[in-house]
Simulated assay, not measured.
Amino acid sequence: MNIQHSTTASGDLIWFKSSHSGDQGGDCVEVAAGPGTVHVRDSKDREGGSLAFTPEAWAAFVGFAAAQPLTA
């Protein structure tokens, strides 16, 4: 899996919050698609940077995560 730390300015990307993130805080993930990359960041620390994945690596991760049983 190709992972790199991204310092892309958040104003250049349109971020989407995970539908699995609650409104009371907790584990919150945001994702943005850029040219040839998918960016992921912690919504509680938006200035803390993000990770950038190739679209193929992100699709593989999402496919793997979707196949895992949900736990509380």
Results as ranks from 00 to 15, higher is better:
Gly26Ile: 12
Leu70Glu: 10
Arg46Glu: 15
Leu13Lys: 00
Gly25Trp: 09
Trp58Phe: 12
Ser21Tyr: 13
Val31Ser: 02
Ser6Asn: 11
Val40Arg: 03
Thr7Leu: 07
Gly26Phe: 11
Ala52Tyr: 10
Ala33Ser: 14
His20Asp: 13
Asp27Thr: 12
Gly25Gln: 08
Val31Ile: 15
Phe16Gln: 14
Asp23Leu: 09
Ala67Phe: 07
Thr71Cys: 06
Thr8Arg: 15
Gln24Phe: 12
Gly49Gln: 07
Ala32Asn: 11
Ala60Trp: 06
Ala65Gln: 05
Ser21Trp: 12
Ala33Thr: 15
Thr7Phe: 06
Ala66Asn: 13
Gly26Tyr: 11
Thr71Trp: 06
Phe16Cys: 04
Val38His: 02
Ser18Thr: 07
Val40Pro: 01
Ala52Trp: 12
Phe64Val: 09
Gly25Tyr: 09
Lys17Asn: 04
Ala57Thr: 13
Gly11Asn: 15
Ser50Pro: 00
Gly22Tyr: 08
Gln68Pro: 00
Gly36Gln: 06
His39Cys: 09
Ser10Pro: 03
Pro69Asn: 05
Gly25Phe: 09
Ala72Glu: 14
Ala72Tyr: 10
Glu30Thr: 02
Gly48Glu: 05
Gln68Tyr: 01
Ala33His: 15
Ser19Trp: 06
Ala32Ser: 10
Arg41Ile: 13
Asp42Met: 13
Ala9Gln: 12
Pro35Ser: 08
Phe61Asp: 01
Gly25Thr: 06
Val31Asp: 03
His39Asn: 15
Arg46Thr: 15
His39Thr: 01
Ala65Asn: 02
Gly22His: 08
Asp45Val: 11
Pro55Tyr: 06
Ser21Lys: 05
Asp23Phe: 09
Lys44Pro: 00
Val29Trp: 07
Trp15Lys: 01
His5Asp: 09
Val38Phe: 04
Asp45Pro: 02
Val29Cys: 03
Gln24Glu: 14
Arg46Lys: 13
Asp27Leu: 11
Ala52Ser: 14
His20Cys: 06
Gly36Asp: 12
Pro69Gln: 07
Ile14Pro: 02
Ala65Phe: 01
Asp45Thr: 09
Ala9Thr: 06
Asp42Glu: 13
Ser18Met: 09
Pro35Trp: 02
Gly36Trp: 02
His20Glu: 14
Arg46Pro: 10
Ser18Ala: 09
Val38Tyr: 00
Phe64Gln: 11
Leu13Gly: 03
Ile14Val: 15
Asp12Asn: 05
Glu47Gln: 12
His39Ile: 04
